[in-house]
Amino acid sequence: MGNGTEEDYNFVFKVVLIGESGVGKTNLLSRFTRNEFSHDSRTTIGVEFSTRTVMLGTAAVKAQIWDTAGLERYRAITSAYYRGAVGALLVFDLTKHHTYAVVERWLKELYDHAEATIVVMLVGNKSDLTQAREVPSDEARMFAENNGLLFLETSALDSTNVELAFETVLKEIFAKVSKQRQNSTRTNAITLGSAQAGQEPGPGEKRACCISL
């Protein structure tokens, strides 16, 4: 990992990883950004960060991913981290029904603190544990459809769909941003990009969400 000056990118998208404790958020992130998986990763306390730049067509998009702690009690703190996020992966463990049962609560939390235009994907993780599945695919997909969420099942352990999940979210954000830019040249209105109350980027900086070069 370098220190800030090395990369070339056109967009920065802030994406948050949320969901109950132990569903595999940190491993999804390490699989996506470093292609690593750890059977014994440590509890996340507060928030951790990672980035990866992907090419979407000709545009280099840097995903700035905030990996938050899943503990209920921490929500008061971590919800502040949703501010300015343009994408979210709401993760549950498809082998533990209770992590799926609370998805709605997480969603409310997210919409309370993030922009209404945020792109959200519901992610059922641990798809490698086929024998232990407690949440049927169709049920989760239905829920996602009814709530206007993207949906994928992933396995951070065997890499299934991890790349696809993040890229789909980034593409969706990118499409929204592109559309908005087209509009904004005419109407001068920006909504997705104005989500940074209290966290203004530094001079000339490309920090947090979608500031084009």
Binding site: G2, G46, E48, F49, T51, Q64, R207, A208
Partner: peptide
């Protein structure tokens, strides 16, 4: 000295790891 060279995300990454 290192932190002074970094931007937001790199500082955040550095200090949380």
């Amino acid at each position: 000295d290192i932190l002074l060279q970094m931007d937001f995300i790199h500082i955040a990454q550095f200090l949380t790891k």
